[in-house]
Design a protein around this nucleic acid. Structure first.
Lengths: 137, 137
DNA sequence: CGCCGAGTTGACAATGGTTCTCAACCGGGT
DNA sequence: ACCCGGTTGAGAACCATTGTCAACTCGGCG
């Protein structure tokens, strides 16, 4: 739809720079989703100097390449995490934010089936459940 | 966690003004998701003069009240639609954006069950499936 | 019927995440 | 060592969304 195509096959070279390495390394240091700005801070704490713009650009590349998953928080912020950890979803309380991590083989199977049915390959998905927790209702 | 509480019980009165009526009417005129700005334009086309800020505020109230569903586009824009249409999810091609609407009673049941199991009430969820469509792979 | 107070509105400023710009820089093939 | 194109960083630019605040409206009351 945009110009994200790649007639040749793979995207250009992609040079392994200090900054890119730093970002992918930090991505290894946590397993949940973090915003670009948080990642930028983590880099700072590590003593790595990487421009915020670069963090955004790198994260963008990585997500295009399918190396990181991207999600949007309720207020529109983008959050990232490296792909393929124990895959799970979140059950979040709308009013107090309490979160429970849940798994469901059935859903995993279902999404794969649906995707296959429509000819989609290399499937992934995001699923968030919202509700009011016992304490808040 | 935020200040979205309501010690009294229900949110204040909520006056039925021309603007609010206009917004809910426009919401009836389409069944898919539209951005606040698009809704604002639609209002203009209808000859209704409603401030953009008011559209945002109204949409916010409506979503808090559970009268409209909110979603985030991939680039962080919020899109709205009045609730309770045939509930469905999207299967999106990562590379060309081609989208298919899919349904799955099983998932609906599963999310409700999981939520109940953890004591969460008033459940809703978001689910997006990503993959590479036949044409792109 | 006119008056009043709280809820609402609209024009505009302010926010804040994300992207763009562009000159300086760096990696690596020759 | 040299060059060229990909990369970076600082800051400006974007743009959706929210805050501000004086003017306005609804609806109950005297």
């Amino acid at each position: 739809m945009t110009s994200t195509d790649d007639p040749a096959g793979t995207t250009p070279p992609l040079r392994p720079t200090r900054q890119r390495r730093a970002v992918t390394e930090v991505l290894e240091s946590f397993t949940d989703f973090r915003s670009a700005q948080e990642i930028h801070e983590l880099l700072g704490e590590r003593g790595e100097t990487v421009g915020l713009a670069t963090v955004y650009r790198t994260l963008q590349r990585l997500s295009e390449a399918g190396d990181v998953d991207v999600l949007r928080t309720e207020d529109g912020e983008a959050i990232y995490r490296r792909c393929s950890d124990s895959h799970h979803h979140h059950l979040v309380c709308r009013s107090c934010g309490a979160t429970v991590e849940v798994e469901g083989p059935a859903v995993e199977r279902w999404t794969r089936a649906i995707a296959a049915e429509h000819g989609y390959a290399d499937v992934s998905h995001t699923l968030e459940i919202f509700g009011t927790c016992a304490r808040c209702s």
